[in-house]
Design a binder for these strands. Sequence first.
DNA 1: GTCGTATTTGCAAGCTACTTGCAAGACACA
DNA 2: TGTGTCTTGCAAGTAGCTTGCAAATACGAC
Lengths: 145, 145
Amino acid sequence: MSTKLPTDEVKGLLRDRGLRVTQSRVAVLRVLSASDHAVSHTELVELQGEDGCDASTTFRTLKTLVEAKLAAVVSKVDGIDRYVFTKTVEDRHEHAHFVCDTCDEVLCLPESVVPAVQPTDRWAQSVKAAQVQLRGECPDCIETS
Amino acid sequence: MSTKLPTDEVKGLLRDRGLRVTQSRVAVLRVLSASDHAVSHTELVELQGEDGCDASTTFRTLKTLVEAKLAAVVSKVDGIDRYVFTKTVEDRHEHAHFVCDTCDEVLCLPESVVPAVQPTDRWAQSVKAAQVQLRGECPDCIETS
DNA sequence: GTCGTATTTGCAAGCTACTTGCAAGACACA
DNA sequence: TGTGTCTTGCAAGTAGCTTGCAAATACGAC
């Protein structure tokens, strides 16, 4: 967990995208910016605690932030969307993720996992642009089992 | 959509696994055996129509069949489990699947998509055993868009 | 065939993730 | 500061899935 972005910087980011600066947006962005892994809606609400906004508002805020490209959905496993803060293009997590069936964590794979499909194949275009996700047991869980 | 397995063959498969032969199990297995793609619970209920069993029974039946290795979950995208009939080991779909964001279909990738991870990496074991899933826009949807 | 018991089923209720409608409140621009 | 538009909170609703429990069913023993 790194440190949260300063409120002023977050406000600037929102304004740059033509979005209104609201309590909910600032709070969500700051929590996302401080997290070192993909955060689910539930987690976000927990992290915000008492001062958090309504759950439906948080859902709408996340949607808005994704549309504005300030956040991205990097995982949609088991019906739970997980979000990351995307200040820069590199933050958009366009690499493979690993979902652990044991600890439920969504982890970034340490190196690019490139599906081996022939470029002539009609699938080539689809696969190239696809979000790659693997699920199984992560190294930590294998070790402790 | 291929043809359903004969009722007697399905009954035999159930008995081989020490499972009781029930209307629900026979019906679900026959529908799965006739489908050329991964079927969700909702789809199964629709395919069975009027004579289908209760939704909760169908859920329990699917779970039982997976435990008995007569079916397998090949996709868990968006919180929707999708099942295939696994008469033989090859049917277990231990290859990559592609989930189309446009048509929602879960498709088998035509050739093995092998993630490129060094065998020395601590991730090697996890990745080797993992279920690989890609999501994006399938070739058909790209063509028609 | 029929009996008894363990397994299954159907129904109802509940859970989580997420969506929607609407009135009230907050933001931003003049 | 006022005004119009956007956002929020609340409540209700949806989909996928689970659970508890009483009634129904499968199947081996007789």
